[in-house]
Computed example of a mutant assay.
Amino acid sequence: MLIKPDPATPAGEAIIDLADLMDGLQERTGEWPGADTVDIVEGWLSRFTFAVPEDLTTQVVGRTWVLRQWDRHTDDVTLWSNEASALASLAQEVRSSWDDVGGTDGVPYRPPADDQAAVDLYYGPEKNRGDAGYTLYPDDISRHVRVPLSLSLSDAEACAEANSSALFHPQGNPDDEGLPCIEIAGILVFAYLDADRGTVRVSVHLDTTHEQLVRTDGTVPIQVEIEDATVFDNLAPPPALPEPTGWKDRIRRLTRRTAPFGSGKLRQGVDHSPRNTII
């Protein structure tokens, strides 16, 4: 299928310009002379930039186990979510080919039930593997994302870009002290099963929230929903402090009556010593 450049885009317009330049060269010379072609392409390429944008940041979005298997005929690489799954797949393959090694060099005629033991017996020591072997190792999954220059909850485009950059941090294994967490705009939301309390627990941490989402009073606007019910929100601004009543109001009035004014003398109304006023 032929690609048709779109003249409405900068890239499409540039491609059409290059085609016009090369057509003009063909009309003038009847061919594409090497030196002239190089000059045209060099000038055309100068219109482009291939630099990596500086506002891209690298994020580790997950972890994978890389299994590479090779022999004289194949060299395959597969990715797995955990080590046990990769090892189980590898063990299944070596068991299907056990007749190739069973009964030789002390290898039993039947493969062991343990996956790692079966793989180790089949391939033997690493230094003696010859044309067949495997490697299995963990590696990070990374991506480049564009950091929004301005992040505002009223900007739909900025919110969508931040949402698309959200990260999920799974618990590595049952012995890992970490907990599954979603990270978005610096906000950490943990959701996990809490055996100590016998409950599903959701915990929101705001200490690292993107500063552009923090209101002037230091809070972050949040709305929490369970199913269709809103169980918490602080979307409305905090209410103004009520006017003091009762004894607080009386103390406030007395304080105003004794406040310095004019030349710094105290208003009359409350007896006081030369050093301080006792109410």
Rank of each mutant, 00 (worst) to 15 (best):
V147T: 13
A132G: 11
Q171P: 06
S164W: 02
E157Y: 00
P170D: 14
D140E: 14
T135N: 05
V145G: 10
H169A: 15
N163R: 08
I141Y: 08
Y137S: 09
S150R: 11
F168G: 12
A166H: 01
L153Q: 12
Y134G: 09
G133R: 03
S152M: 11
F168I: 05
Y134P: 03
D139V: 04
S165L: 05
S164C: 05
A156F: 00
E161M: 12
A132R: 09
R143S: 15
L151H: 00
T135H: 08
H144L: 15
V145F: 02
G133W: 01
P170Y: 08
A166R: 03
Y134F: 09
Q171K: 15
L167Y: 04
A158Q: 06
A156V: 00
A158R: 04
D131G: 05
L167V: 02
A162I: 06
A132N: 09
L149S: 11
A158I: 05
P148F: 10
P170W: 10
S152L: 13
P148D: 06
A132Q: 01
E157M: 01
H169I: 12
D140M: 11
V147P: 01
A132Y: 06
R143F: 09
S152I: 11
S152N: 12
S165M: 04
F168A: 13
L136C: 04
A132F: 05
R143D: 13
S164P: 01
L153P: 08
D131S: 08
A156H: 00
R146N: 02
P170T: 07
V145D: 01
S142P: 00
D140S: 13
N163C: 12
H169K: 15
N163D: 11
H144M: 15
L136F: 06
L149A: 14
L136N: 10
F168R: 13
Y134T: 08
A158N: 09
S150H: 14
A166M: 05
C159K: 06
D139I: 07
S154Q: 05
S142V: 03
D139K: 12
L149V: 08
S165H: 11
T135W: 02
S154H: 04
Q171S: 13
D140C: 09
L167K: 07
S142Y: 00
S164R: 07
E157I: 02
V147D: 10
D131A: 06
D131C: 07
C159L: 10
F168C: 07
A156C: 00
H169V: 07
A162W: 10
D139L: 11
L153E: 15
S150L: 10
T135Y: 05
S152C: 12
S150V: 12
R146H: 00
Q171M: 14
S164G: 11
A166W: 01
D139A: 15
A166F: 00
H144W: 05
L151N: 00
I141Q: 14
I141L: 15
P138L: 10
L151E: 01
E157H: 04
